[in-house]
């Protein structure tokens, strides 16, 4: 035990949120629990939102159609993180990718693993890696991360509108 005089303390403050998802997020989370990606399509501009929302932010209309999506996608853009959040120990550096899943028109932020930092790039083809099925919950955290596919890069045109 140290005999130095105490000069500081760590006083953790915790808040537990009870979250009530709306219709769109409920559908999305139920599909996640069953191991499926589900987006929703705007009846006006035909864009598919994933994760889905209640309505299209561009057209201002309510979504009606649910669209199953692939487990594969394209890195639209990314960030290499070299600085941790305060008090949060994640091994550095790590890569956060904005992934446009095939069939979707917007991106989802996910951890990208399995590729050297100097090879991380826009257009990289990836697939979602799920945590073990017995741990699936109503959560996007069912996706542990994305990993590269052994495929040629997607052309810029295919994801430019998602950036």
């Amino acid at each position: 035990m140290s005999d130095e005089t105490i000069t500081g303390i760590i006083a953790p403050i915790r808040m537990d949120y009870r979250y009530t998802p709306g219709t769109a997020t409920s559908l999305f989370l139920r599909a996640m629990k069953e191991g499926r990606f589900e987006g929703r399509r705007c009846p006006s501009c035909s864009k598919v939102y994933f994760p889905p929302r209640g309505g299209c932010s561009m057209c201002g209309v309510e979504f009606a159609e649910t669209v199953p999506l692939a487990n594969t996608g394209t890195v639209a853009t990314y960030t290499i993180v070299n600085v941790n959040f305060a008090n949060r120990a994640v091994e550095l550096p790590y890569v956060v990718a904005e992934v446009k899943f095939d069939g979707a028109d917007i991106t989802t932020s996910l951890l990208l693993k399995g590729v050297p930092l100097e090879e991380v790039r826009q257009g990289l083809r990836v697939e979602a890696k799920w945590i073990p099925e017995e741990e699936w919950d109503y959560s996007l955290a069912n996706i542990s991360h994305v990993e590269p596919l052994d495929e040629p890069d997607a052309p810029f045109e295919s994801y430019k509108d998602a950036i």
Binding site: T7, A11, P12, R14, M15, N87
Partner: peptide, 16 residues
């Protein structure tokens, strides 16, 4: 959500 606040105690609370 949890934040670990690091606080200086000052001399008196530190001594306590």
């Amino acid at each position: 959500m949890e934040f670990a606040y690091t606080r200086s105690t000052g001399p008196v609370v530190g001594a306590f």
